[in-house]
Amino acid sequence: MTDVPIQMRQDTTQDTTNERFRGGSPLVDLLSRGGLAIAILAVLVYGSLTSPFFFTTGNFVNVLTSMAIVGIVVVGMTFVLVVGGLADLSVPATIACGAILSLALQPVIGPVPAFAAAIALAGLCGLISGLLIGYVGINPIIATLGVGTIVLGIVQAAVGGVIVYGTNPDTAALVKSRLFGIPVIVLIFLAVAIIGHFVLSRSYWGRWTVATGGNCSAAEASAVPVRAVKAGAFVITAICSGLSGALLGLTLQSARPLVGTGYEFSAITAVVVGGISIMGGFGSVPRAIAGLVFVQLLTNVMVLQGVRTPVQGFVLGLLIAGAVALDVALRKRGGGA
């Protein structure tokens, strides 16, 4: 018992001096990647054993559709975590921005320009957060919390704080339609995911993102534009959430200001459960999506089992805390040895 505080103090020192992720340990890699695959399999088996509806096409189309909306945000959030930006809490605001504006502007400038304008404005919000975080050096959580509050307020004020309804049924039909039996939304999500994956893993920007998250000073010394890269991650997330919100608005044909509440946590949970370190410098889009698949299947099984919504939130919270704690523990074992 007397040893505990000493142990604790040692760990604190180690934590502050050893903040970045020391990746590359095959053991850690195998554990987090293999663990997730096993977990997904376990949920699949459990779901198909306990519910007759689980293994039906209808159910999987449902899962995929609800996954698509969060999934687009997850792609952006991956960039934020990899660059070491902790998290983007302005996602509910940018989703609301996308959803409300894409519907509210329809009668004024037509459906397609409204769609584009909604996403562009969401991207602008991301640019503001990005400038504050990358160039002014403000803590990302505080910056996105503040910017999100402001943006949500402005969007609400712009439409008078009411629910906005769609006026163009054609757009709804287009978004809800299917191509080869796959909902269009899912195809859009896949396209975003593939682009995101190639940008992160194959492009200069992606390599810069990983380098900045891994060791910011070293990256800066190697002439990586770290400030722009950091800011860029938040712009990417905002554009993704704007797109996601616009699609959500078109699907529902109505948008209320709080339409995006909770999406930030779903996205963060997916990325963190995918084994991407909150400390940055490491991670890929497919990993994050694997995390998303696991979380979505788990939620689906819980819904089919009749587990109440609060309990689902509880499980999500536990997953975030557990995944991050596990990441810290694994990192210490992998990096410190």
Binding site: A87, F265, G317, I320, A321, V324, A325
Partner: peptide
Amino acid sequence: FKVNALVATLATMLI
């Protein structure tokens, strides 16, 4: 558990 306070309290906020 050494979880970053921002993330830890984000999770407990939900919980």
